[in-house]
Design a protein around this nucleic acid. Structure first.
Length: 455
RNA sequence: GCCCCCAUCGUCCAGCGGCCGAGGACGCCGCCCUUUCAAGGCGGUAACACGGGUUCGAAUCCCGUUGGGGGUGCCA
């Protein structure tokens, strides 16, 4: 007995969004845990919307997340002959008919008859043959019921009478999604179909087609809860910015994405939330996945990312942040910055004053320089730093404490003008370590420039 | 309209008939620490949608209501 065979079957119509990534992850976790296989199928049959660049983007995003797959990805577009063959089989078995109804005609008939929208089987018995503007429909049973066996949802049951006859071959001769999907799953010997809940309503058609094609043992289904936005609507590529590639660019860590995504719809029962990939593979249970939709909470993702960054070895952190920086970050500042960022992209703006002249933030300036003694602080700090023997954080701090005392200011207040003068902002890494790295010359120049600016 | 799915703190989860006067995490609030900002420590706020059943006992099972979502394409 071989392991289960799963598939992730995205259509290349955009970036990989987090909902798809979550589906890919759950497929991957289950396959890896069960010693099965995860196949990749690119459903590129929508010429109007598919773009080749998205295909490579999907591969790249999956690789970044650490989700690998078995064998070469299957391009659905290369399987047209098999789809046509399957359609011919169904036609020969008398399970199909040709239809020349336009969408308008269908709608008008429904409206005129006061029936709900949807195809009415108008062409079922017209005996039409293939031809211009004619599509092939699959004749679904008019009685009985079709049951979906779903690991997550139990057994959703659909009356066959309410299942419309789907178009399976377009008038162009190309297979529609349902047919291609079923034929490919049969040929790829898929045993478990793990996908979004949005596919559940079309699953009975899938099942009926599978049986009509003699696909053999039916796959087991697991329809995952949708990922929703703050309005509790299904995440959409257009409306919501949720591309995996974007999170990557913003400096989220791949293991954090995987950890967080895994928890959207599933959790171990002991309450642990920070799980390694190995732990996820070991502990994940498809049957324990929730059935209710989950909101993708950026705040929690950020919390996880910050935690993980802080837990990194400083060298690893510096290495990881590299791509977001123009040059190397002084080792003395690495741990200080590491503790203060949530994403890797936040590193650069935090230390930009080191290598470039500070950009003065007006609000910070106004607040720090508002105290009457600000000018004196800058002057005396410059004097003290000019005379300082030992240019180190500890002595720099001592000297400024003394300056503060001479002006009756505590360090909290005395450091503010210096910080803004040197970094341009009121927030940033610890001041004295920053000055140490900056060096005497630059520090003095910036203190004097700020003093001059004060007038 | 019709079909299907869903329903525990603001959010994500735990709970699978008694251990629940409901637990954890994120968020939020307060306090402590503190050279800014963080981090850290401590404490707090906050939920079983509603109504019927079943049962000695229900957040947990059943039915209904309400609410939300998805589907209903010659898209996938």
């Amino acid at each position: 007995m071989t392991g289960p065979r799963l598939r992730f079957a995205p259509s290349p119509t955009g970036f990989l969004h987090v909902g798809s990534a979550r589906a890919a992850l759950y497929n991957w976790l289950f396959a890896r845990q069960q010693g099965g296989e995860l196949l990749l199928r690119i459903e590129d049959t929508d010429e109007a919307r598919d773009r080749e660049e998205w295909v490579e983007g999907i591969f790249e995003a999956l690789r970044w997340l650490g989700l690998d797959w078995d064998g070469e990805p299957v391009r659905q577009s290369t399987r047209a002959a098999r789809h046509a063959e399957a359609a011919a089989t169904l036609e020969a078995a008398g399970r199909t008919y040709w239809c020349d109804c336009t969408r308008d005609a269908i709608d008008q008939r429904a409206h005129a008859a006061g029936r709900p929208p949807g195809y009415d089987g108008f062409c079922r018995d017209r005996g039409l043959g293939p031809g211009e503007g004619r599509a092939m429909r699959f004749a679904t049973p008019t009685s009985g019921a079709t049951v979906v066996h779903d690991l997550i949802r139990g057994e959703p049951t659909f009356d066959n009478a309410v299942i419309d006859d789907p178009i399976i071959v377009r008038s162009t001769g190309k297979a529609m999604f349902v047919l291609a999907n079923v034929v490919d799953d049969i040929d790829m010997a898929i045993t478990h179909v793990v996908r979004g809940e949005d596919h559940l309503p079309t699953t009975p058609k899938y099942l009926l087609l599978w049986e009509a094609l003699g696909g053999g043992e039916l796959p087991v289904f697991a329809h995952l809860p949708m990922l929703v936005n703050e309005k509790r609507q299904k995440l959409s590529k257009r409306r919501d910015s949720v591309a995996v590639e974007e999170f990557r660019a913003e400096g989220f860590l791949p293991e954090v994405m995987v950890n967080y995504l895994a928890l959207l719809g599933w959790a171990p029962t002991d309450g642990r939330e920070r799980l390694s990939v190995d732990e996820l593979v070991r502990e994940f249970r498809l049957t324990d996945v929730n059935s209710s939709p989950a909101f993708f909470d950026l705040a929690k993702l950020r919390a996880f990312n910050g935690d993980t960054i802080r837990a990194m070895a400083p060298d690893d952190f510096a290495l990881a942040a590299g791509p977001w920086l123009s040059g190397p970050l002084d080792p003395r500042l690495v741990p200080l910055v590491q503790e203060r960022v949530v994403t890797l992209a936040e590193v650069a703006p935090m230390v930009d004053f080191i290598d470039a002249e500070p950009v003065i933030d007006p609000a910070s300036w106004d607040k720090a320089m508002a105290i009457p003694a600000a000018a004196s602080v800058l002057e005396r700090a410059a004097d003290a730093y000019q005379a300082l023997d030992d240019w180190q954080a500890a002595t720099l701090k001592e000297a400024l404490v003394a300056v503060g005392e001479s002006l009756d200011l505590n360090l909290k207040r005395a450091q503010a003008p210096v910080r803004v003068a040197v970094t341009g902002r009121s927030v940033g890494p610890p001041l004295f370590e920053s000055l140490e790295v900056l060096g005497r010359e630059v520090t003095l120049r910036r203190l004097q420039a700020a003093r001059a600016r004060l007038g």
